[in-house]
Simulated assay, not measured.
Amino acid sequence: MIAKNRKKVENFNKRKLSFNKNWTVQTLINAFVIIVGSFVFAIGINTFMIGGHLAEGGVIGISIILYYAFGWSTALTNLLINVVILAIGFKFLSRRAMYYTIFTIPMTSIMLWITEDWQINFENIIVNMVFGGILIGMGIGLIFRVGSTTAGTTILARIANKYLDVNVSYALLFFDLIIVTIGLTVVPLERVLLTVIALYIATKVMDFIIEGMNPKKAVTIISTKPELLAEHVANDIKRGVTIMHGRGYYTQENKDVLYVVINKNQLGRLKRVIKKHDESAFVVVHDVNDVLGNFII
């Protein structure tokens, strides 16, 4: 009986001490990416945006306004506001995103504190605008890529989506524009308009970082020569093709529908193949945000 109980204790200790090595390594890598992203983001804010007396969207935009108006530390106000918003809207994040966000919020504020004196005001304000937008987009893109968020208006946008049925992207843009508009109280109109351009640059860079260097396109093809097109896509472009069976509602004719996911730089080649072998084919091209797996279908 004693031996049996000892064996149970040993088994319990083994289970308690066991962990997924791959998961732990990936978590450490993600944490490192968040640290790098926070640092790049902080440089974009302090060195270029504040250095050029520009504004910004999101919670950091509010922090910048308070810094211009009262001289309050952006690191501190960014931390406090984000903590309050996260406490209110944490249930709108997945558990994984919430854990990473809890790590991201103080890390971002620490990096803002470290770089708060790294301000550079270039003679040409366009330099501040462009590089501020690029670095902010890179920083947020890295943070989002590993599944974290910067809290702030991201959570507010999700709350608006749930209760007001507003698209998250539009809600996020709406909140950012409100904050940028409030910035007119402490920033000249010219600088606010430059800030809007910087926000656009940041959005494009962020999308590039999240989607990767080689974004995908999904192509749906309705053709009278599906087998011929599928053969050329497979042999000439070296991509897998899925053939689905469909039926036209108006003609009631059975149709084969081709579906293929390709690299963006292969789209022109695919269009030429389709035009060469079936000019009457109906083609729809879709943007693809993410692709998981690597196999021929």
Results as ranks from 00 to 15, higher is better:
Val273Thr: 15
Val59Ala: 14
Asp176Phe: 07
Lys275Asp: 12
Ile65Ser: 08
Leu292Gln: 07
Ile102Glu: 06
Thr242Met: 01
Leu258Ile: 13
Tyr200Phe: 15
Thr74Met: 04
Ile178Gly: 03
Leu17Val: 04
Glu227Lys: 02
Ala151Asn: 06
Thr224Pro: 00
Ile85Asp: 10
Val166Met: 13
Met1Val: 14
Lys7Ala: 12
Leu164Thr: 08
Glu190Asp: 12
Phe70His: 08
Ile179Met: 07
Leu112Lys: 02
Leu189Ile: 13
Arg247Gln: 13
Ala171Tyr: 14
Asn20Lys: 03
Ile102Met: 11
Phe144Tyr: 15
Ile209Lys: 04
Ala75Gly: 08
Val33Ala: 12
Gly248His: 00
Gly89Lys: 06
Ile105Thr: 08
Gly183Ser: 07
Thr24Phe: 15
Leu17Gly: 14
Phe19Tyr: 11
Tyr163Trp: 03
Lys264Ile: 02
Val205Pro: 04
Leu80Trp: 05
Met98Arg: 05
Pro226Cys: 06
Leu199Ser: 14
Lys4Val: 05
Lys8Phe: 08
Gly246Thr: 07
Asn121Gly: 14
Asp236Met: 01
Ile110Thr: 09
Phe41Arg: 01
Arg272Met: 10
Val192Asp: 04
Val192Tyr: 00
Val36Thr: 09
Ile159Gly: 09
Phe295Gln: 10
Ser94His: 07
Ala55Ile: 05
Val196Lys: 10
Met1Ile: 09
Glu231Gly: 07
Gly141Trp: 04
Arg95Gln: 13
Glu227Pro: 00
Val83Lys: 03
Asn22Arg: 07
Val130Pro: 11
Ala202Ile: 11
Arg191Ala: 13
Val233Gln: 06
Ile105Asn: 02
Glu279His: 02
Val205Arg: 04
Thr149Cys: 11
Thr181Ala: 14
Ser63Ile: 02
Ser109Thr: 14
Ala151Gly: 11
Ile102Asp: 08
Asp290His: 07
Leu76Pro: 00
Ile120Trp: 07
Ile43Gly: 03
Leu28Gln: 12
